[in-house]
Amino acid sequence: MNENGALVHLKEVRKAYRTPAGDALALRGIDLQIRQGEFVAVVGKSGAGKSTLINMVTGIDRPTSGEICVGSNAIHGMSEDQIAAWRGRYVGVILQFFRLLPMLTCVQNVMMPMDFANVYRSPRERRARALYLLERVGIAEHADKVPAAVSGGQRQRVAIARALANDPMLLAADEPTGNLDSKTAGAMFEIFQALVDEGKTILLVTHDRDLAARAARRVHIADGRIVDRPDQEREVRRDLHA
């Protein structure tokens, strides 16, 4: 927790990408705070900057300027290596395309973050926890199967279990239901809700407004800026092109 009580604090965060046509601003001075136990959905159209925002919070990408604090860590000043270690221990990341290692079984995929962070010291303990997590997401019976042998929805459940491996303080999910049908997407959301009920903090990026509506709080982002309401997008665009 940082000094103002927020778990995640972004201050004047900007992100610019170099292109042959010049710098493209993906984030234009984002200020955002997320408290512990919140379930926050970041919504916006394609190209609005949602994924860039979540990448800033998880340390996957680095801001061009601004400050990012997660817990008591100012991650904007960390090296790539430090961030990786920090992320493994304190942030669970769930991505749209699952990103499981194809040669490992589901339970091995869940155990891997524990092995890198060296938590739950004995391998037996790690396996037990991995099986517990798979049970929690409802696919314990597929523990010893490789990802190619299970469905997309089941793979996403494994990814969720993996994200929970080291009991992180923050779960960050970038379009976790983007590759799933609506029924499966709904089931995913139930899992997220259950985690929130247990006190987890979840930051979710989605373009699906219906799903976003089920989150406790929605943050609308348009053209790299946080807007208060969706209908403010048009104003933002007009301002930008004026």
Binding site: I60, E80, D81, A84, A85, R87, G88, R89, V93, L95, R99, L100, L101, M112, P113, F116, A117, R162, A165, N166
Partner: peptide, 15 residues
Amino acid sequence: PQIGVMKLIGARRWQ
């Protein structure tokens, strides 16, 4: 891509 995944879930470069 697999290196990316390992870094995503907490692997340090030396690991």
